[in-house]
């Protein structure tokens, strides 16, 4: 494999730095430029080795005036699992009351990452 430069927009914060990632012949990250904070560098490396995203969506909730409970993964999950994770959320039915931060799924698809409630939902 040849050496290569990949550009990415950092999504860690609203600044949106343009990152240049220098890849070595082995495909590993050699140098990151364009970031303005250490988190940008970590993001760049992760984009090459293990790209991850926080997933936000909804699950069904019963026993409340709300139809849906917004949820998110507590941490970023592997990017290629986003659609599979959405399928998992389709199956879930939560009973009100729910508190923000309550765990909705303990271990999402074996990632070890929980899905948590994103708001309070009172019982009807």
């Amino acid at each position: 494999m040849n050496e290569q430069v990949i550009t990415k927009t950092c999504i860690v914060c609203p600044v949106g730095c343009e990152l240049s990632i220098q890849l070595g012949a082995d495909g590993q990250c050699q140098e990151v430029t364009g970031h303005r904070c250490p988190r940008g560098q970590a993001y760049a490396i992760a984009e090459i080795t293990d790209p991850r995203r926080v997933l936000t969506s909804t699950v069904a909730v019963a026993g409340s005036e709300h139809r849906l409970l917004p949820v998110r993964t507590k941490e970023a999950i592997p990017k290629d699992m986003l659609f599979a994770a959405i399928q998992e959320l389709q199956k879930v039915l939560v009973k009100a009351p729910v508190h923000v931060g309550d765990v909705v799924i303990e271990d999402l698809l074996g990632t070890g990452i929980p899905v948590i409630a994103s708001r309070d939902v009172k019982s009807a």
Binding site: T58, V59, A60, A62, S64, R67, L68, L93
Partner: peptide, 20 residues
């Protein structure tokens, strides 16, 4: 509808209007 979980479980659907 999104999130069919609720339909399969037979949970009551509540329109967002009215009750409150």
């Amino acid at each position: 509808p999104l999130n069919k979980g609720m339909v399969e479980s037979g949970a009551e659907m509540v329109a967002n209007s009215g009750k409150e």
